[in-house]
């Protein structure tokens, strides 16, 4: 058993547990192998969806995210999560409320009605940044946990928007051509391929997927063209909503635009799970809209 000195409250969000449960179980199992322990954050809910809620009433957005944060404060534990959308809500609201007394007082007035108080006593991390952080795990330790290297595969990394942008308010450095997740992918033995307009959005966010599906898919389609151009065997991301957009989106693109790509889409945790020897069944890859077989045949 790996030592578990790094414990976090695991904020699940919605799409991972309720659509791609393989992401959830992969996160728990892969992080355990590098000494990170994820504990359930009981009673958490939607982050809430930054596009949907933030667009309607930012005050509700702040208050509902604060409720989730308080649950972790009560456990006296930092939060980790595996979704960029959740990161936008949970990390950003934590950050805003820690630095803006007026908003914090407003939120606490509402939270009083449910016997809660936001104290600002914890931090929020994306699991991918913990994997990259040498103080917690780091690329070398991650590489050492690999038992089935993904040698010979080409992987296109989709960073998504809400983890790293807006760059000025985050701490990830360059947002035009970042490489740190590419490094994580290469630690698994795969080749991280570079493609045109890598930082472009998947098209799902801001409520656009629900508002105008064709418009949203057209953005996805552009990314798929760019990824195909460089011969990627799979797309990896760190956001189940991006995953849904690429994965289910390819089926919708086929229906709407008559274009077929068939590119498997795997969350970085699923990819790591495969590299650490987990079976496709243990990752529930059969729930994916796009068949992962062509990719699996290259590594199994």
């Amino acid at each position: 058993m790996a030592e578990s000195k790094h414990q976090y409250a695991f904020f699940l969000g919605c799409i991972a547990p309720n659509r791609y449960p393989g992401c959830e179980s992969a996160a728990i199992k892969t992080s355990a192998k590098v000494g990170i322990e994820l504990l359930p954050l009981k009673g958490a809910g939607c982050c809430p969806a930054p596009g949907a809620f933030g667009s309607i009433d930012l005050n509700v957005f702040y208050a509902l995210a604060a409720r989730n944060l308080v649950l972790a404060e009560q456990m006296n534990m930092d939060i980790t999560l595996i979704c960029n959308g959740c990161y936008k809500s949970i990390w950003e609201v934590n950050h805003i409320l820690k630095h803006n007394d007026e908003l914090r007082d407003g939120v606490n007035e509402v939270l009083k009605e449910v016997d809660m108080e936001f104290k600002g006593s914890i931090d929020v991390w994306h699991l991918a940044e913990l994997y990259y952080d040498p103080k917690i795990c780091g690329v070398n330790k991650l590489a050492a946990s690999v038992t089935r290297p993904l040698t010979g595969t080409k992987i296109a990394v989709h960073y998504g928007c809400h983890l790293m942008k807006p760059g000025k308010e985050r701490h990830f450095g360059d947002t035009e051509n970042p490489m740190w997740i590419d490094e994580l992918v290469e630690a698994l033995g795969a080749e991280a391929v570079q493609y045109r307009n890598k930082m472009q959005c998947c098209g799902a966010g801001g409520g656009v997927r629900g508002y105008d599906l064709t418009h949203s898919l057209d953005i996805t389609n552009e990314k798929l063209i760019n990824v195909t151009e460089v011969g990627a065997d799979a797309i990896t991301e760190v956001c189940p909503f991006c995953q849904l957009q690429y994965d289910r989106g390819q089926i919708e693109i086929e229906e709407k635009f008559g274009k077929t790509y068939g590119i498997p889409v795997l969350h970085f945790n699923e990819l790591l799970g495969l590299a650490q020897g987990m079976s496709p069944q243990e990752l529930a890859l059969d729930l994916h809209g796009i068949d992962c077989k062509p990719f699996l045949e290259k590594i199994l």
């Binding site: 930054p50 596009g51 933030g54 667009s55 928007c161 809400h162 942008k165 807006p166 760059g167 000025k168 947002t175 035009e176 930082m199 472009q200 959005c201 098209g203 799902a204 966010g205 801001g206 409520g207 656009v208 508002y211 105008d212 418009h215 949203s216 953005i219």
Partner: peptide, 12 residues
């Protein structure tokens, strides 16, 4: 107004 994906490219 509702076609912004909130990608924050403009903001960056």
């Amino acid at each position: 107004l509702w076609l912004c994906t909130t990608c924050y490219s403009c903001t960056d």
